[in-house]
Design a protein around this nucleic acid. Sequence first.
DNA 1: CCCCAATTGACACTTTCTATCAACGACGTA
DNA 2: TACGTCGTTGATAGAAAGTGTCAATTGGGG
Lengths: 156, 156
Amino acid sequence: MSRFLKARQDTLPPAVTDLAEQLVEAGYKVTQPRLAVLKAATAHKGAFSVHELEQWLIARGESPGIASIFRTVRLLCDNNLLQRIHGLDECHRYSLGAGHGHHVVCTNCGLLVRFDNCGVQELIKGLERSTGFQITAHLVEMFGLCPRCAQMQAAA
Amino acid sequence: MSRFLKARQDTLPPAVTDLAEQLVEAGYKVTQPRLAVLKAATAHKGAFSVHELEQWLIARGESPGIASIFRTVRLLCDNNLLQRIHGLDECHRYSLGAGHGHHVVCTNCGLLVRFDNCGVQELIKGLERSTGFQITAHLVEMFGLCPRCAQMQAAA
DNA sequence: CCCCAATTGACACTTTCTATCAACGACGTA
DNA sequence: TACGTCGTTGATAGAAAGTGTCAATTGGGG
C-alpha cells in the first residue's frame, strides 16, 4: 500500500481502499481526485452517470473538475473496475464490478442488478452458423421495473 | 399517394416510395428533405449513423442540413420505420426495418444482419423470478466479424 | 390555384466528452 | 525525512452530437 493511501485509509470506506489498491497494482498513482471519484462511485448503489458523480462531488465540495472525473472513469473502465452500461435512450452509465456481466436496470429508479450467466451461448453458436459471422462480443441488458417501483406503479 | 410523391416516384427507388407512403399514412407530409434522407438510408445496406447520412447527402449536393436529418431520423424512429442500434462504443446507429429485432454487426465494415428470435424469453422469465423485476424491454446485440472481414483478417 | 398548417433551414445553444499544457504532487530512492 | 522525477491535475478551449427557436417556405386539401 502506498504512503498516500495508508495515510488516509482510516477515513475511507473499505470499498474505496480496495479499489484504490487495485489501481496501485495496475501501476497507477492513488491521488486525491481519484479517491474522490472512487468515493462517489461506491456511494451510488446502482448505475450512475458521470454527471451524477459530479453532482455528488460538488455537493460535498470535493469535485476535482469534470475533466478529472471523466479521466478517472475511463481509467477505471480500462482497468475493468467499472463497467459501462448501455441504456435504451441514455447511453452511458456505469457500475462498479469487474468482468463479464449483464444488468437488469429499473427504468424508474435506476436500481441495478447484475447477472452473469446470460445464457446466450447457444444463440451465439446458432447465429455463427447461420450468418457466418465470428461473434466476439455481445450486449445483453434488461429493462423494467424493480419490485419497489412496480408496487408503487400498481398503487397509483 | 400524394401529388408530390407521385410526381417523382419514377425517379425514386421503390424502397423509398414505399417508406414515403408509410409516412403519408401516418399523417406526415412527404417533402424533399424527407425523401433525401430516405434515399440516403436505403442506399446504406447495413447500419448507419446520422453523420454518414449527412456525408452521403452532402456528396450529392442534397443535404437539407443536419437539423433536418436529425429530425427526419427521429420521425422515422418514432414511426418504427427505423431502428436505433446500440453499439459497444459508438452509441447511435440506425437500420431500416420495423418491429422487434436484434442485430449482428460487423465491427470492421458495419455489415448488419437482423435476427428476430433472440431466444431470451427463458432468461427473462428466470430473471423476473430471481430479481422480482418486471422486465419490459431488452437489448441484445452481437458484434463480430462478417465472413468477408474474417477472411481478410485471416489472410493478413 | 390558393391558403394554411406543417415543415424547413440557419443558427445559437446544450450536453457530453476530449486535447492541451503549465503547474503540481505522489512515490521510489537515499 | 528530503529530493527529484514523472505521472497526474485543473482550467480552458474545443470537438462531437443533438436540440430549440423562429421567420420563411412549401406540400396538399379544398
